[in-house]
Design a protein around this nucleic acid. Sequence first.
DNA 1: CAGTATCCCAGACGATACTG
DNA 2: CAGTATCGTCTGGGATACTG
Lengths: 107, 107
Amino acid sequence: MSKTHTPETAAQDVETILKLLEGRWKLIILFHLFGGKVQRFSHLERLIPGISQKMLAQQLRQLEGDGIVLRTLYPEVPPKVEYRLTDWGQALCPVLDALLQWAEQRG
Amino acid sequence: MSKTHTPETAAQDVETILKLLEGRWKLIILFHLFGGKVQRFSHLERLIPGISQKMLAQQLRQLEGDGIVLRTLYPEVPPKVEYRLTDWGQALCPVLDALLQWAEQRG
DNA sequence: CAGTATCCCAGACGATACTG
DNA sequence: CAGTATCGTCTGGGATACTG
């Protein structure tokens, strides 16, 4: 590890990061937004079979609160909300790719 | 993402990987083994304040079962058991580093 | 020393219903 | 359309005690 020093602080830092991605649905939501894709709430609902409105809303709120997802509300009737990744959220893509590469290395 | 194609499969692959690291104590155990360090059960217990024997054993078993940690039992009395990372487990270090780098990028 | 075995609980998650 | 509210379930993890 480059800048962190003790096993404790490094482990804790990584844990904090992983918590951002924990949650039954976050990764699949993320992957439906990678590549600059923009999705409405109802569209994500249709893209992700089995998810409830409660969970979709909750996970999106958390991703938004963590600065990974950007939420845009259009003040129309009926309401229209769009979700996309922040720049930082987009930057997660190559990192997850590194994780996949690691998994492939397994002997 | 390089080789995976649909958001579903990619997300699922990453989830499978992250599950290997989930668990209240796995990361801190890992960081106490990075760099080729070898530790005995009781030593890890002392290194990790607050962990119970049950949890330490459980998390080690899972890491072992997942091929990340190597367990060596010396048939002595009293028993002696050593834990170290597999090569694959060691290879996780730079990946977690990438994760830390990403976290630092946050605007 | 290096573990198991039990019991318990908080919090994550799902199902369902309701709303501005 | 895009959510909240409520309730029930299930499981990861903690406390404690015991063992080859």
